[in-house]
Design a protein around this nucleic acid. Structure first.
Lengths: 147, 147
DNA sequence: TTAATCCCAACTGAATTACTTGGTTTTCTT
DNA sequence: AAGAAAACCAAGTAATTCAGTTGGGATTAA
């Protein structure tokens, strides 16, 4: 039940770009350094995020990546689903209903998987990048007061 | 974010044993047949469940497995944690705090993983095998009425 | 005694993970 | 025009996990 580095690094990267939203394109190298991720590996992840309309890129010198939408329009769920697939603990409760089990109508374990999936969906769909930025700012402000 | 067959088969097997709770030992072959699982593979899973005090076994002919506690004392969380480990989406929010990240105090993504983990915990710790049996019986009773 | 059953250890093919390597192309700056 | 900064792309890879299989043994009821 663990996320792979795709989802974890991907969210970190998107959060980093959200922190700098409005400042123009940010080079991937900066993001990779800041979050301690291999730049070449991160490249593959942002390619997916871009293909799915969450990122835009600017090529050439002074180029980089930017969020395709404002941070309050991008949820954690948007990001994780693109990089990890549906947040479903079993194939029989995938959102797109690809997989069909003939016992589905009276399968009690399916009810369990459904409840797990729904609770995860609730959380990831309710948190936007803006929420994360706000939380970050609150934490940082409190840290300053402590000193 | 998917469960492996360990967790999925394991819960199905435990549910099957819960259905027959009080009837003495149930041979693994029955469980495997009923739930369409390789018996030899299931053997490995029940070994883990037994080692962790969720199952008891009776050897020899007419032997089999039985729940070590009554179905209302065994939660889905008990079963999944034994077979899959903590239901944490990232190592930094493992229940046992093995893994330590030095940025933990101001890591916003950690807050996200924590909320996901907590919501999963809420669900799996709130459902007992008895709940599943009850649900199963309700579904079956309704099915009968439909005909 | 024999058949049913649990118990145990090792092996395996396929897939996935988390990268790395080694480029090419585009564009800004000088 | 040259050089450098960046995005873009394709392939390879070592390690691990997954989902079993194989081939036995030990225990016990009938």
């Amino acid at each position: 039940m663990k996320l792979s580095t795709k989802g974890r690094y991907g969210l970190k990267a998107m959060f980093q770009l959200a922190l700098h939203y409005g400042e123009g394109p940010i080079p991937l190298k900066n993001v990779a350094d800041e979050q301690n991720i291999s730049e070449n590996y991160l490249e593959q992840l942002v390619a997916v995020l871009k293909k799915n309309g969450l990122l835009e890129s600017v090529r050439g010198a002074q180029g980089g990546y930017l969020l395709a939408k404002s941070p309050d329009e991008i949820t954690v769920g948007n990001i994780l689903r693109v990089l990890e697939g549906d947040m479903a603990p079993a194939d029989c409760v995938l959102d797109n209903e690809m997989f069909k089990c003939e016992k589905a109508e009276y399968c009690v374990t399916k009810l369990v998987w459904t409840r797990i999936r729904d609770s995860i969906d609730d959380v990831v769909d309710s948190i936007t990048l803006q929420d994360m930025v706000d939380e970050h700012n609150t934490i940082m402000a409190n840290k300053k007061l402590e000193v």
